[in-house]
Simulated assay, not measured.
Amino acid sequence: MPEVIFSGPAGRLEGRYHPAKTRRAPIALILHPHPQFGGTMNNQIVYNLYYAFLNRGFSVLRFNFRGVGRSQGAFDHGSGELSDAASALDWAQSLNPDARACWIAGVSFGAWIGMQLLMRRPEVEGFISIAPPANRFDFSFLAPCPSSGLFVHGDQDRVAPMKDVQILIEKLKTQRGIVIDQAVIPGANHFFENRVDELLVEVNTYLDKRLGPVAEKTAPAAQLPAPDGEDAA
């Protein structure tokens, strides 16, 4: 899991990048939770999403938004972080000019940033949105949503209540040309405490459906890091 530093709009950005073993492999970009509430690229869910795509032959990048870890700059309320994500995808694509497609996965605040990015990048063919804070941030830009994808949230989420996410999902499901899948994790809060395994089952089941089953896993569960501090969004 090589450490990387690449240029962003506010200075260097710190990341972890793993190239695919085959040419024309797709790219996956993983976006972490809110920087002001403990979110980093080492968040447990982010880490697992990273390996979910790596195990399917993607070139995968996760990184710290500006002001987090060794990434330069300061929190910019979403605008700068969207620019960071665009720069990260540009960097990954520069290393993989023949990549046939791209996926974006985000957790909470990262889900909001990721959905904005996919609106700007027609090469994004799929997304995974974990606990999107539909009550805290405006998702009306998804008109229409250009890609099919998966939303996952917990039925005990008090930070981003399920009713608000449900309204967003029902609106997207009316759009033609895409398919929106949804998974609700019983008993899960916004941080999926004690429910990460159930979350990963849903994510991997969806990726199996879209991309095919995993032939060989790269990272055993024993290598999982401790979760980050709780993020509010």
Rank of each mutant, 00 (worst) to 15 (best):
Ala20Arg: 01
Phe192Cys: 11
Ala25Phe: 07
Asp84His: 10
Lys209Phe: 09
Ser87Phe: 13
Gly177Leu: 13
Glu123Gln: 15
Ala219Lys: 14
Ala233Asn: 13
Met162Asp: 06
Arg176Ala: 15
Asn96Tyr: 04
Pro26Gln: 07
Lys21Ile: 03
Arg70Cys: 09
Gly78Ile: 01
Pro97Phe: 04
Ala20Gln: 01
Lys163Asn: 13
Ser140Phe: 08
Trp112Cys: 05
Ser71Trp: 03
His190Asn: 10
Arg62Ala: 09
Ile130Pro: 02
Asp164Ile: 00
Gly126Thr: 03
Val196Gly: 04
Arg176Val: 13
Gly38Asp: 06
Met41Thr: 01
Met119Cys: 13
Arg66Val: 09
Arg24Gly: 08
Leu172Asn: 00
Asn55Ala: 12
Gly110Glu: 05
Pro33Asn: 08
Leu150Ile: 09
Ile30Met: 01
Asn189Cys: 11
Glu198Trp: 09
Asp155Lys: 10
Ser148Leu: 00
Ala88Tyr: 04
Gly154His: 03
Pro132Ile: 04
Phe137Ser: 02
Glu123Phe: 07
Val214Phe: 10
Gln166Met: 13
Ala215Glu: 13
Pro161Phe: 06
Gly8Trp: 09
Ala160Asp: 03
Phe191Pro: 07
Gly39Gln: 05
Met162Ala: 11
Pro133Thr: 06
Asp157Gln: 02
Gly8Ala: 13
Met1Gly: 14
Met41Cys: 09
Pro133Ala: 10
Pro186Tyr: 00
Glu3Asp: 14
Val165Ile: 15
Gly39Cys: 06
Val159Tyr: 00
Ala188Ser: 07
Met119His: 05
Ile113Leu: 02
His18Asn: 09
Ala25Val: 01
Val107Arg: 10
Leu199Lys: 09
Ala88Leu: 01
Ala111Lys: 03
Pro132Lys: 03
Ser148Val: 03
Ala131Lys: 12
Gly80Asn: 05
Ile5Val: 12
Ser59Arg: 06
Val159Leu: 05
Pro122Phe: 04
Val201Ile: 15
Val60Phe: 00
Ala25Lys: 03
Leu31Pro: 09
Gln36Leu: 15
Arg70Lys: 15
Asn194His: 12
Gln36Phe: 02
Asp231Ser: 15
Leu168His: 04
Ala143Glu: 14
Pro225Ile: 09
Ala74Gln: 11
Pro133Trp: 06
Gln116Ala: 08
Arg176Glu: 15
Asp197Leu: 12
Glu202Arg: 15
Arg195Phe: 05
Asn96Phe: 02
His32Arg: 07
Val159Trp: 07
Ala188Tyr: 13
Arg56Gln: 04
Val107His: 07
Ala233Met: 14
Ala111Met: 07
Val46Tyr: 07
Lys171Gln: 15
Gly73Asn: 01
Arg176Tyr: 12
